[in-house]
Simulated assay, not measured.
Amino acid sequence: MKVLGQKSKEFKLQRAVVVSLAACLTVASYSANAGDVQTEGFTLAPSLGYLTHSESRQGAEDAADASIAAGYQFASPWALELAYTISEPGNPIASGDLDANQIRLDSLYHFGKSGKAQPYAVFGVGKNEISGGPNDVDETLLNAGVGLKYQLSKALSMRTDVRAIAGLDTDTMETAFNLGVHYVFGKKAAKSKPVSKPAAAAAPMPIKVTDTDGDGIADSADKCPNSDAGSKVDQNGCYRVLKEDVRVELNIQFANNSDAVVSDSFAQVEELATFMREFPLTNVEIKGHTDDRGAATYNKQLSQKRAQAVADILVDKYSIDASRITAKGYGEEQPVASNDTAAGRVANRRVEGVVSATVEKIIK
């Protein structure tokens, strides 16, 4: 009977390991067709690990374990997980292995992202059950640790962490090492459809009739009969007017995690202000941006502060009416370069603005 019981326990652990590995493979195969990078949504994180015991708990020895965690990643640095862990540590005191199970509710806090790597802290509370030894254990536990996620694809990351797990009732301590994958199920950004361009209007056919000034328009329809021969005129025989768009562009870079406008950028702001005074009917949208390091919510707030800082200079220093200025932060949503390089991140930490006006020039 002991042999059968031991085989049953071994089968249970093997089954947990197989389920965890199968979940890893399923998540990995699904992520191959994933779209945009997910920053919010439900999460699934199977893993394998190892538990070490700094103090004896029912004679339990160090052992491998298998875990599965499901939760939700919020649109902030925070995430919440419900995790279940199973292991069968050896027991030199009693014959056969022990049955050890943990269920935990954990909080994760993610720090700033560096390239594809993102560190995080984890802490939580749970329940620990050990049976099969001289005395069964049923206790409350606390755990805390640090970990790292490394992005493999749009929604899939490798994940590893180390934790200290304290048993409150038995006054014992465990150390847990885990390695697995982390998948985020979320909505993908809809792809914008290309806007079709209107077909160019066909040029009017010239009328071969009496044309005194030689501009190609018949005298009967020529409202400007004294135009120069061979000049470019409209259908009324008058000189054509070219409507030309003139514009001023603003592109200011910012230091990492800063919304301060450096003095080297003031010349661009002054040029924009001069243009807006020359064309008093123009308005401008000041657009703030960041790189992708840090949480998306924080980056949106930082980009708004950057845009507002430039808008305030236009109003306070150059007396541009605030009603003509809109400041809006876009966070990390509109990069102009890759965030995987330092130069690309510098280019993405920016404030943009474009002001345009139409002027008319006579073409002869």
Rank of each mutant, 00 (worst) to 15 (best):
Q6D: 12
K7A: 13
K7D: 07
S8I: 12
K9F: 02
E10G: 12
A16C: 04
L21M: 12
A23I: 06
T26W: 10
G35V: 08
D36W: 06
T39C: 08
T43N: 02
T43D: 00
L44Q: 03
A45Y: 05
P46D: 03
G49A: 02
Y50L: 02
E55W: 05
E55R: 14
S56V: 05
A60G: 02
D65K: 07
S67E: 08
I68H: 01
A70C: 14
G71P: 01
S76Y: 13
A83R: 05
Y84L: 10
I86V: 13
P92A: 08
I93G: 03
S95K: 13
G96F: 03
G96R: 01
Q102G: 02
Q102W: 08
D106L: 13
D106G: 03
Y109M: 11
S114C: 07
S114A: 10
G115C: 05
K116L: 12
A117L: 15
E129H: 07
G132A: 11
G132Y: 04
P134G: 09
P134H: 06
D136R: 07
V137M: 10
L141H: 09
L142W: 09
A144E: 06
V146K: 00
V146N: 02
V146P: 01
G147I: 00
G147R: 00
L148D: 04
L152W: 11
L156A: 15
L156F: 15
S157E: 01
M158Q: 06
A166E: 05
T172F: 04
E174A: 08
V184L: 13
G186T: 04
A189M: 11
K193E: 15
S196Q: 12
S196N: 11
A201W: 05
P206A: 07
D211T: 11
D211N: 15
T212R: 14
G216H: 03
I217T: 14
A218P: 10
A218F: 00
D222M: 04
K223H: 10
C224N: 13
C238F: 10
C238V: 10
R240G: 07
V241D: 05
K243I: 06
V248D: 01
Q253L: 10
N257H: 07
V261A: 05
S263H: 06
D264Y: 14
D264E: 15
S265G: 09
A267V: 15
Q268Y: 11
A273L: 02
F279A: 08
T282A: 11
V284Q: 00
K287C: 08
G288D: 01
G288W: 00
T290C: 15
T290A: 15
D291V: 02
D292P: 00
D292F: 01
T297W: 09
N299E: 02
K305V: 05
Q308F: 06
Q308D: 14
I313F: 01
S319E: 15
D321L: 15
A322G: 06
I325V: 13
Y330W: 03
P335L: 12
V336K: 11
D340Q: 12
D340G: 10
T341I: 07
A343H: 02
V346I: 12
R350N: 08
E352L: 15
A357K: 01
A357L: 07
I362N: 09
K364N: 12
K364D: 11
